[in-house]
Amino acid sequence: MKYLIAFIDDEPNILRGLRRLLRSKRDVWEMVFLEGGEVAIDWISKNEPDAIVTDMRMPTVDGAKVLEYAASHKKGRIRIVLSGEADRDLTRRTVGRSHQFFSKPCNETSLIRAIEAAFTSCEDVLSPEMQRYVSNITTLPGATKTHDALEKAFKSGSISELSQAVAHDPALALRVLQLANSSYFGRPNDTLSIASAVDNVGIEILAELWETGSLLAAPDTKEIDAHLAEYTDLAVETAQKLYAMSQEEGVSDAECEDAYAIGLLSWVGEVIRSCGTEELRAHLHEKGAVTAAAYVCCLSGMPPRVSQIMEHLVNAKGCGGSAEQRAEEIGRVKYNRVEAF
């Protein structure tokens, strides 16, 4: 079965260039090249694309409107922006509705890798239906205590307080690292350092995204809030144990931060599970939640080592409800105590 990919741009020369660049994928992808946002929305409404790659600045119907339509109608397992000079207000509207942002001119290898990863990551564990469900969550929720910490940090204007808030919530960390590792608001950084990611994106942009609900959603009920608070505590405990373990290994500060972020992000699946349907909660029980975390990290452009370690956890004993077990298992992989990849 060929995957169906839609490429959208208002410039015919750009579309012809993409067609040439991606000629090697003709046997595995069915590709359509759509001129302009209006044509794109009409086509998307009648088809089920596996991936959508769109320019931003287009007359009448811009890329943000295309992505808004696609996200609201749950179209595409991965939605990518491929654009030139970014307009901050326009780009801000794509946060949550897109998974990654590539600047023109784009290295076709990176673009191909991002699209293919969305199809192959966790395919043996997550059904296509579950993949589509996870990929169409626009903004994950955070516990009330996280929102309180964000409000305090933005009011004080303290970048240190903001970094601390991000470092204590897996869903929030995922969003900030997604923005820093892609070209949304500047040059992308291949980083898992939460402090660096916050600094890279900037407090002003993060405040704007929080005010519009694109940074972190609010919990729908008190019950969900309680679950989110519990998973947040487990995520932080896992991350702190991994950071301490890394220090004992004598690795660099960057490696310690790397381990902290992976421990924190490994609980994103439980956040997804807590706010999902009954069917989703059943499907993502225990190991399925770790798989969902691996998948959403892959979609969001996290460095490949994140998903690789999490995919290993799916087959490990220590990926259930214990922070200590999960930290130990991640440590076993990260420090070559087992063959992981």
Rank of each mutant, 00 (worst) to 15 (best):
K74T: 13
S72P: 15
E324G: 12
A217W: 05
K65D: 15
E11A: 15
V201W: 00
A114R: 10
E161G: 04
L4K: 14
S274E: 11
L215H: 01
W43T: 15
T238D: 01
V95I: 15
L172D: 04
P141A: 15
N189M: 14
Y3F: 14
A226N: 05
A149H: 06
Y335L: 00
E249L: 08
W29Y: 02
T191H: 06
G276A: 07
H99N: 05
I224H: 01
I52R: 10
A207M: 10
R19A: 13
P12C: 09
D89S: 14
A261I: 03
E211K: 04
P219F: 00
V66A: 09
T277G: 13
T232V: 05
I78K: 01
L90W: 03
V166N: 08
D55H: 09
Q178R: 00
A239W: 01
R305K: 13
I203D: 11
L90F: 00
A261T: 10
S196E: 10
I112C: 15
R88K: 14
A293F: 04
Q178N: 14
P188W: 10
L140G: 04
D220I: 05
P303E: 01
A173S: 09
L111R: 09
Q308L: 08
E324N: 12
V296P: 02
G250L: 08
H285Y: 14
P105R: 11
S300G: 02
D169L: 06
S135V: 05
M302N: 06
S121L: 08
A40V: 08
A327P: 03
A51P: 03
H283N: 14
R77L: 04
R16S: 15
P141F: 02
K46W: 05
E48C: 07
E257N: 13
A40C: 03
E249N: 13
Q240M: 13
D10I: 10
S196G: 14
M31L: 09
T139A: 07
Y3V: 08
N189W: 06
S158E: 11
Q178K: 04
T238V: 02
V271T: 14
F119L: 10
Y335Q: 12
G263M: 03
A323D: 04
A316M: 08
I52N: 00
I194G: 02
D27I: 02
T138H: 00
I224M: 03
F7D: 07
I112W: 13
K46S: 10
R57Q: 09
Y260K: 02
Q325D: 15
L313C: 12
R337H: 12
A86P: 12
S83L: 03
W43P: 01
E249V: 05
R93E: 02
R26F: 07
E129N: 07
F7L: 11
A207F: 11
Q178M: 13
M302S: 06
A40R: 07
E30V: 00
K2S: 10
N189Q: 15
S182C: 11
D9Y: 02
D199H: 13
S252P: 03
L18K: 02
K104A: 02
R16V: 13
W267T: 06
S246L: 06
G17F: 00
H147W: 12
H285S: 04
R93S: 06
A86K: 03
G318Y: 01
I44R: 00
L126T: 03
I309K: 01
D62S: 07
G17L: 09
